[in-house]
Design a protein around this nucleic acid. Structure first.
Lengths: 334, 334
DNA sequence: TTGAAACTTCGTAAATGGTGGCCATTAATT
DNA sequence: AATTAATGGCCACCATTTACGAAGTTTCAA
């Protein structure tokens, strides 16, 4: 690969001038500029971004840490971040944390060691303290779907409590009283906040929270099927099932259909997240919209504003979930 | 952040010795080694992988280029690659090409400029010639889901023609004769090969390919719904619809249900890819399994073998698709 | 017992491919 | 002639790797 040195030689200018042309941060006459560009083209020169980054301690790349690379949730999130940043000429370096503390830390340290200009992380296993300390380092860290008081300026989050409330409220408004709940892993803040919202909605309608109608799943399809199997064995009737995410809802729907429930007449189900395929399930899934893609865009904008000094960007840090009515909830009123 | 220099000072040894301890590629006495390790721990030292990469022109990271970050297909692919590489202590840098030539090239050049030790790319828009030339550079490039004769050693691909054949064959075996086809964008090799397979199956059963029962979609849900709308307006009867991927199949199913088709009695639909949610559609989607996750693992193994000299890995370069029978195809025999 | 060969262990310094500050030089403008 | 714009030339610097070679230590045959 050609180096800047060869370019300068071919163009008959100095190293500094080539660097100036590349970064166009200093005045260079059009004529010399053209000579340099021609030389670059002729040599097929591509700046070595590693060397560049080492010398300037910038990298024009942003690290992203997600729990998993697959699944509709993270896909939408990454896509949102990437498209916004790419439009601004920045690149993205993605790695995973698998919701395990060690791996999350490892991933973050990798991103830091790659001189990322900023990190956007969706972390679930590391502590708030760790994140606070991390933020004192030279690489700013932004958090997706997590709210840490001390870092409130750097969090893009969803009001999960409100979402949990809206889901259960929608069920209650349709006349249900016996309501089961399949939660997500409680160490995840999203999951525990959704549960809080669920409890608030119950309380507001004077429905008692019933431990026998409660199951903690894994946020995957199996969590939904396992959960529903467990719940049906508790000798407690219920007409509706609130699932803490759509994947568990789809698992529950499948299990329900295979075990003779009529949907939604026999069992109403509501999900959370409004992932793409919620609209393709049968019956189409009533759920709570989680605007992850927009949140990804917003996180990227926040980085552009803070780190790259793009001034006039409007930042919105807390997103509100909304109810998406489809056909998986039956009306039991009248 | 502490540097190697500070570590060497604290440990009372030279820079080189610290480097040796880090890479343990040269003999260092246990005593000095311990001193160095202690100093590292005390300073919380983390090697700067950028500097390291510049000096050694290795990076222990592999570039991945996918078309999109979202969607079940790429998610599974990335996850497969990443988990295999991570287990080997390598990191992954992901970027996107959006199926556009410029962006794909840009992405590849970014990865090269980041000193990736290898690139695993799922590219659709760039030409074979470009890829061949690319491979003469110092960064080896591996191709996912694409077969280029000259680079056959570096391609992990699916026999899409066979898959296309199997799908249509399955439909024909169920007694269908009037078969519509919604293809993917024909500049994508996957899509055009699947179509070839479809035509082969038709020919084998002496069914003529009918232009009025053919639509080119975008590989997304809209492609399926738009396609089915178009097809129903052609005044040609058909009892089965072959879709070149599951997402279009789901779009078609939705459109069909909304327009009064009974599934699968009124219209049989088969997909391709066997993405996660195919199993959650209603009716569950009969489709062709595309083992992307395994292919991702295999691509990673290939890199480990070629680039990092892990010898005893078994490599399988061409994967065979298989038919997954579920409930979206009705039997019209007898 | 001894001394040279062989091997360990570790330091020095160059190299990696750029950035960016400073000052000097040259050319164009006023 | 003085000012200003457009370069060139130099050099320190970024954090690390790695050839080279200099000590120090072992081994072993004479």
């Amino acid at each position: 690969m050609a180096t800047i040195y060869e370019v300068s030689k071919l163009a008959g200018v100095s190293l500094a001038t080539v660097s100036r042309v590349m970064n166009n941060n200093a005045r260079v006459s059009d004529k010399t500029k053209q000579k340099v560009l021609d030389a670059m083209a002729e040599l097929g020169y591509r700046p070595n971004s590693i060397a560049r980054s080492l010398a300037s301690s910038r990298s024009d790349s942003i690290g992203i840490l997600v729990s998993e690379l697959h699944g509709p949730f993270f896909g939408q999130m990454m896509a949102g971040i990437e498209s916004e940043l790419r439009a601004a000429g920045k690149h993205v370096i993605i790695t995973t944390g698998h919701s395990e503390e060690d791996k999350e830390k490892d991933g973050i340290e990798f991103l830091i060691s790659r001189n990322c200009d900023a990190i956007i992380a969706h972390v679930e296993a590391v502590s708030d303290e760790y994140l606070i300390e991390l933020n004192e380092g030279k690489t700013p860290v932004y958090l997706m779907s997590r709210f840490v008081e001390e870092l409130s300026e750097k969090c893009i989050s969803l009001d999960n409590e409100l979402g949990g409330y809206l889901a259960t409220k929608a069920i209650i408004d349709n006349g249900h009283q016996k309501i089961a709940y399949i939660a997500g892993p409680q160490f995840k803040a999203d999951a525990s906040n959704r549960l809080l919202g669920h409890k608030r909605a119950l309380k507001e309608s004077n429905i008692e929270f019933n431990e026998d109608l409660f199951f903690i799943g894994d946020f995957k399809e199996t969590g939904g099927s396992d959960g529903l199997r467990y719940l049906t064995k508790q000798n407690e009737q219920f007409t509706a099932l609130v699932c803490a995410n759509d994947e568990m809802a789809s698992g529950a729907m499948k299990y329900a259909r295979e075990h003779g429930f009529r949907l939604p007449e026999g069992l109403s189900i509501i999900g959370f997240d409004n992932v793409i395929f919620a609209n393709y399930l049968y019956p189409t899934l009533t759920t709570i919209d989680n605007p992850v893609n927009s949140m990804g865009h917003m996180a990227a904008k926040l980085v552009l504003k803070d780190v790259y000094q793009k001034k006039k960007l409007e930042i919105e840090r807390v997103f509100e979930p909304t109810l998406i009515n489809r056909h998986s909830v039956a009306n039991h009123n009248n």
